[in-house]
Every structure is written in C-alpha cells, then in structure tokens.
Write a protein that binds this DNA or RNA. Structure first.
Lengths: 194, 194
DNA sequence: ATTATCTATAGATCTATAGATAATGC
DNA sequence: ATTATCTATAGATCTATAGATAATGC
C-alpha cells in the first residue's frame, strides 16, 4: 500500500489541485475531506498524513488556485485581462476561474492563515500589471491606485453577476457595463471593444 | 406550549432576522438550524412549522437583510453612502452590514430562489440613487451604468478588504483608495474627502 | 525502520421528521 | 379542532484518529 516518495508527492499535489477546484465550485464548507480524497482517487484516512487539518489544506489550495490563475493570465496586457475576466465564460467557470472572486467571501470567515494567502494573491494580481516602464514615484502611486480600483471593480462585477439567477439579464448587464467602462479607461485601450 | 397568532408571527420574524445576521457573520453553511433557533430563543424542532427547509429560510433572510440595509441607507446621498460603505466600521460589522457584500459568494452556490432575492436586492441598491430629477433617456442610461460600476467597485473593495488578514495594511489601503476615487467621481462631491 | 495508504470507527454535528403537549381560536 | 412549540430521534454527514498493511528507503 505504500508508494514511492515521488508518487506520494504527486498525490499530495493532486489533492491540493483537486481541492483548489472543488472549493471554488462549492465553497470551503461545501466539500468534505472524504469526498475530496475520493475525487483525487484516494481514501480519506490518508488525508491526515499529508495535512494537519482541513484548514491547512484551505490555505494551500488558495495559494495553488491563485498561482494557477496567475500562470494563465501572465503575459496578458490589462485590456486582454479585463475582457477575459468580465466575460460570461469566466463567470460560468467557477472551478477554474479566479480564486479570489470565487472564495473571498468564504475566506473572510476562515483562519488568518487562509486570509494571508488571499492578501498575497491580491498583491500579485496588482503587481501583474505593473506596466510602468520606469515612471516616477507619483506615477507609480497613481498606477497602483488605478490597479486597486480596477481589480476591485472587476471582482465586484463578477461576484454580483454570479449572485444573480442563471440567465438573468442583470447578471449579463453588470458584466457588460463594467467591461466596457474598464476597457475604456484602461491605458492600452485600442482594440477589443466587442 | 402553543402561543398566540401574533406571538407566532413575531417568533417567525425573529427567526428570519436572527438568521439574516448569523448568515452574514458565518455564511449559510456556517450556521445550523438548531443553533439558529436557540439564538432566537426557540427549540429547533419548531423550525419546520415556519419554514419548509433551510433553503427557504436563506431566501427569506436574504430579503430581510437586504431590506434592513436599504432602510438604513435610504435618504443618504451617494457620497454619504460611499463614505459609509467603504469605512472600516462597515467592513468590520459583518453581521449588520451589507447583505450583498457578505453573502453574494455564498449565494452563487445556492438555489435559484436565493439568487433571485439577490438580484432584486442589487436592483434596489441601484435604484436607491436614482438622482435623476427627470433627465433624458441618454442620461438615465448613463446614470444606470455609472451606478452599476460604482456599486460593483464598492462591493469588490469591501469583499477584498475582508479577505485580508486583520490589521493588514492592504485591507485598509483597498478601502481608502476606492473610497477616495469613488467620492471624487460622485455627482455630489463637495464635502467629506476625509 | 519508516511511512503512505487503507479500513474502520469515534464522536460531533447536520437537516428533517414524528409524536406529545398545551394553549389558542373557532 | 387547530397548531405552535417541545422532546426525542432517525439517518446522513463531517473532521479526525487508531491500527493494520505493505512497499519504499536506508
């Protein structure tokens, strides 16, 4: 029943990545350890050789999900990012979409160790668009404020759109209005108005 | 053990209002029926004479919380609303604060009947600031888009701020940056810059 | 010898229901 | 007679632990 060290490490990674998806889809309290382990192809007793508690896994899964999101969006410019972030496709892909948008509400009620991962994730999201090819101190400050406002607006729009009933006109309107406005005020607004 | 019709109605209302607070504080899955009924001063078996299921209560509690929020903010102008909404006090009062910000993430994974209450609540929030003392069709459209973007930005800022660890500088920065920018672009920006 | 995984289970908790009780409302 | 509430419980599920197993890693 034992397994090679590399295999055990791979199993651990698979647990974290499975959790990162299931938690986004159903919330931290919506997925049990047994179901999660079964989804990863293991039995649930083995869980506690990998993690001290479910809360420990929440923190790791948050970091994993955020890092997966960053890998996907890295290399995009701000306009491309906004167009994707505020698309219906992204709204309707809870399990693979933005971890911060999917789980910030849950994270607010979880231990500090979980929230710490979200704070790092938010900082990374802001830094990902550090356009500034060397601008002055004032510009850096202004750009950071712009990124904070833009990200908050995008997260809020996604969260609100998802809280509406399926096929609700309001759900689409929120996405479309915010996408249009954020693209219009984005520094590299040239293409994709859709 | 029976109780007057008026008393039963009062008990029912108390259950809903207690739920509206507890759900905001701990999430829909973080509060059990037994604990909720105890908090309302009743035993949990009685719950099902008032509600068909916990999901039914979620929908009622959402409507109740949203309506309580509206009652508090009605009569405020947009600038006052923003200053309050993006204050540390509001961020730190989960149980009595904005229902939409506290529970939209949870609502996205709940039945359509719950999400329908959120859609109505979002529409009400937008309508609450219908400044327009009779403006043209174009202006009404532009104003609605402005309100959608403003509300999404405010909700996003609150949700992100709450996902950060307590006393995190980032948590305060997000609130302050968004408050400053939304107040600057608000139609009635004259006073309170803080 | 160590340890990753499995089976089995302890002990809590959760939603929901059944049946008794006792006061209201007709 | 109706019904709001209570006590008690069924049946599921949840987190976590204990002990057995068997293959790795020294």
């Amino acid at each position: 029943m034992k397994v090679t060290k590399a295999q055990a490490q791979a199993n651990r990674t698979r647990i974290v990545e499975t959790a990162a998806q299931l938690f986004r889809e159903r919330g931290y309290d919506g997925v049990g350890v047994a179901e999660l382990m079964a989804a990863a192809g293991l039995t649930h007793g083995g869980f506690y050789k990998h993690f001290g508690s479910k809360a420990d896994l929440m923190a790791e899964a948050a970091a994993s999900g955020i890092s997966q999101n960053s890998a996907v969006s890295s290399g995009m410019n701000l306009a491309d990012f906004i167009a994707h972030y505020l698309s219906r496709e992204h709204r309707d892909s809870l399990g693979t979409g933005c971890t911060i948008a999917a789980l910030s509400g849950d994270a607010a009620r979880k231990p500090e160790e979980v929230k710490a991962k979200f704070a790092v994730g938010i900082e990374n999201s802001l830094a990902a668009f550090h356009h500034g090819e060397s601008c002055g101190k004032r510009d850096r400050r202004a750009e950071r404020e712009m990124m904070i406002a833009t990200f908050a607006n995008a997260v809020g729009a996604l969260v609100l759109s998802r809280a509406c009933p399926d096929d609700s006109p309001l759900a689409d309107e929120i996405l479309e209005v915010c996408r249009k406005r954020l693209l219009a005020s984005s520094p590299d607004n040239a293409k994709q108005e859709q």
